[in-house]
Design a protein around this nucleic acid. Sequence first.
DNA 1: CGGGCTCTTGATACGCCTCAATGCCCGTGG
DNA 2: CCACGGGCATTGAGGCGTATCAAGAGCCCG
Lengths: 248, 248
Amino acid sequence: MIVSRARPLVVGDAFGHAACAECDARTVSVCDALDTADLSRLAAVAAQRSLEKGRVFIEEGEKAADFFNITAGTVKLFKLLPDGRQQITGFAGPGYFLGLAVGETYAFSAEAIEPVRLCRFSRPRLYALMHDLPALEARLLQTACNELVTAQEQMLLLGRKTARERVASFLLLRAAAAAPCSHRQTEIRLPMTRAEIADYLGLTIETISRVLSRFRADKRIDLPTPDRVILTDRPWLEDLAAGNLEHV
Amino acid sequence: MIVSRARPLVVGDAFGHAACAECDARTVSVCDALDTADLSRLAAVAAQRSLEKGRVFIEEGEKAADFFNITAGTVKLFKLLPDGRQQITGFAGPGYFLGLAVGETYAFSAEAIEPVRLCRFSRPRLYALMHDLPALEARLLQTACNELVTAQEQMLLLGRKTARERVASFLLLRAAAAAPCSHRQTEIRLPMTRAEIADYLGLTIETISRVLSRFRADKRIDLPTPDRVILTDRPWLEDLAAGNLEHV
DNA sequence: CGGGCTCTTGATACGCCTCAATGCCCGTGG
DNA sequence: CCACGGGCATTGAGGCGTATCAAGAGCCCG
């Protein structure tokens, strides 16, 4: 079942378009493709809501009734095997557009890993709007292509990189996500647990922990707390992530 | 460099739209989204060509100048690490639409693994056509979403499945690709080598060979020749691929 | 008939997983 | 205030699955 529908928790407001104009995620999301007039049409079919940490709001196999746009917080997208093995296919932060499922059902599940705010769009209404606003459709196509490139990179990581290369790649990905404009940040925050990092990288918590400890011992990173990482030797991490350091 | 441009090998014809109407891939490709009139407009910007086995016609990092539509044969899409490690992100057969790269450069390489025929579309011209034909754009979005779902499934495979589960998944995927309409086929053809299967599944040739031999010994499949597989116990393979058979 | 390729099979090595114990942090309640 | 308990992270010891290395078999094609 779609938990979020059972407990709506809607924080909707009567001034949807006004909220859009002030939305933090405005400039990094699909909404950016629209001018103010069209944006109000988009806002008209949107409903805002808040989700507490741990809330599963998309379940794989359920009827794909809605699209979502994250405006605050982080969610994980994942698939499960019957025995509980989990693969996280991505983390989605503010601006991320969710629900590009083909066909009638979602192909993955989604869960808030910290308090989240998002906009919900009903599928048929967004489709109708897409028909009217080619800019919106073009933007969605662009979004999908971006996802595809990211997915291909992740397949390379999962299929062919070592544990240390995976963790290095992950840290740099986080750094890039935090500062989109190559705005070299050295400190990053990890809103996810070790278990979630492991399920994202196709490893175990122990391996994540060991690799991070090793990086710290080698003075490549610093770990003031488990959820804060300082990249002290970024060039080395980049070489490792790219597969340039064979057996170091 | 884009090898296919250095040696064009164009088998173009003056009656592009006529060729389209007779194209084997017509009904399973993006072209299916268009009526005959619009199809001729699409054909006008297309060029047909043939590629011999081994020909690399898209190179990762090169300027993304063209889109491609496979009409015959099979190509592999892949990414490389500097030391030669390879991850095949997918195999593309007739009807497959290629080149949905975001930005200016291709994010992957593509190589014909058997003789291939394809249609080439210049990027700017296809974009212009997309602007005029919303049906085309919608179809591309749909294609991209399909790819995305496939990619997520592959991430689950690469990150969390065992070698035997991966090979079972692969065989069933091949069976589904050969007979799109759940047209239960028991025999499948493998146009790719063991090395390519290995690079697709994140394993080695030896593991592929061992798992297939084991499946045969257990009477789950038959292997009349290395490139032909007969699925003799499909339900068991399906259970294994889905992760339902823990430690068999 | 030889050369090269792919595929198969065996022996061994190693990277990551599994299992287990401990430490740390923090919220809770006596 | 501190004792207690539960989650999460860290660290160690040992095992397993897949990789690596190596040899031989089958096949195509000249």
